[in-house]
């Protein structure tokens, strides 16, 4: 069968969604980053079980936990919104509702991650 794509289209390799493998690749890279971060996070949270406010604040205010938690938040929300986007694309078939839901998910992910990072920064810088 003849290839109806133009040579330029073929060499760009961006496909019908015009973004090529970017979504797939970003999902894998954030997944890879989340392997060590998740293990660190799980151990930290278990250690903090039943901690009072002063203990939790002291932990979150120290350099490594603050830095690693900022990374965890960023990777989690990026990975999470990429995943939810695929779920929405699979199950929501009304075009307007689909686009609205995806935009909402991406917007909420940005807002929540920025709020969390701002809160960490406030504690870390002694607010």
């Amino acid at each position: 069968m003849a290839d109806l794509r133009s040579p330029l289209n073929r060499v760009r390799g961006l496909g019908s969604a015009k973004e090529g493998t970017h979504h797939w690749w970003a999902q894998r890279l954030t997944a890879l980053a989340l392997i060590p971060l998740t293990i660190w996070f799980a151990i930290s949270i278990v250690m903090l079980t039943g901690a009072d406010h002063a203990t939790a604040k002291a932990w979150l205010g120290s350099l490594w936990p603050a830095a690693l938690l900022v990374l965890t938040i960023a990777m989690t929300f990026h990975h999470g919104q990429l995943g939810l986007q695929v779920v929405i694309e699979d199950y929501v078939h009304n075009e307007a509702l689909k686009i609205a839901s995806i935009l909402l998910v991406k917007g909420v992910a940005v807002v929540l991650s920025v709020v969390a990072i701002a809160a960490i920064a406030r504690i870390a810088f002694g607010g």
Binding site: Q81, G83, L112, V115, A116, A119
Partner: peptide, 21 residues
């Protein structure tokens, strides 16, 4: 995966609460 994104809301709540007092 869906459950974990909801769980992330709880994580944000916890972090913000530590900052809030």
């Amino acid at each position: 995966g869906i459950a974990l994104t909801l769980g992330a809301l709880y994580l944000v709540w916890w972090i913000v609460a530590i900052a809030a007092g």
